[in-house]
Amino acid sequence: MVTLRINGREHQLDGLDPEMPLLWALRDHLGLTGTRFGCGKGQCGACTIHVDGKATRACMYPIGSLGERTVTTIEGLASQADQALQDAWVEHQVPQCGYCQAGQIMTAAELLANNPTPDDEAIDTAMSGNLCRCGTYQRIRAAIKTAAIKTAGAKR
């Protein structure tokens, strides 16, 4: 039996391999399919979630290692800043196919939580682990900057 704390709820899963990556527990056993499979080895970032607030690759994180840590997935993004980020994504019409975007947003949310006004270099550093085959990087960058401005404005 393993207990997973996800998006503010506890889930008990029985009989699963503790080595099973969180990605597959989320997708196949908890119906949280917003976390995407892209590579299975931490290369693409499509499966990015937050573990205790830190952007983490769910495809590399065994459920047995989670312990008391709390998980946030794209379905659980709820803060005002996170919603401003999602709004900025819509405003800039960032998505093309959309598959990688949940992971992109999870990475960007962590970036903005730690650095509310990131410059291009900080955005590059944070976001270069997330691949987008459609090539939406330019709009991702723009959306992050828009969200940063809006969130900073709201706090004032």
Binding site: T33, R36, F37, I74, Q86, W89, V90, Q101, I105
Partner: peptide
């Protein structure tokens, strides 16, 4: 599908 995509609700084949 923009809003569904940014909230993780969009339905792809694997979902």
């Amino acid at each position: 599908d923009g809003r569904d995509i940014v909230t993780g609700k969009a339905g792809f084949g694997l979902d």
